[in-house]
Amino acid sequence: MSDTKKSFLIINRKAPYGSSAARDALDVALTISVFEQPLSLLFMDDAVLQLLPAHNAAAIGQKNLSANLSMLEMYDIDQLYVCQRALEQRGIRPDDIELNIILLDQSGIAALIKKQDQVLSF
């Protein structure tokens, strides 16, 4: 494995089901973590809906994305940033979310993107 590390940011913008975007982002995140690169996840727009607890996706014949997201800390993926405005627009309180998240305003998001080596958007 290379000595040089690159920082990665994965931007999530889509709801958990209805397209493969959320699952694709998760797959890429887990893969990056296996290579032990510094990794952050940013949830904005409809992707904050991924963070609602207690999905029961068996009702639509899918796997629970909320269960998978709670696994991220087992992969040492603990930099989970969330767009505060996206939460407010959807009436979601930070306390509703059972993951350890870091809230960001618009300038915080810009600063987060600016300091990354690579940014992937889903």
Partner: peptide, 9 residues
């Protein structure tokens, strides 16, 4: 209803 339950709503 199933679509709401699936999404934890």
């Amino acid at each position: 209803e199933d679509d709401a339950i699936a999404r934890g709503l």
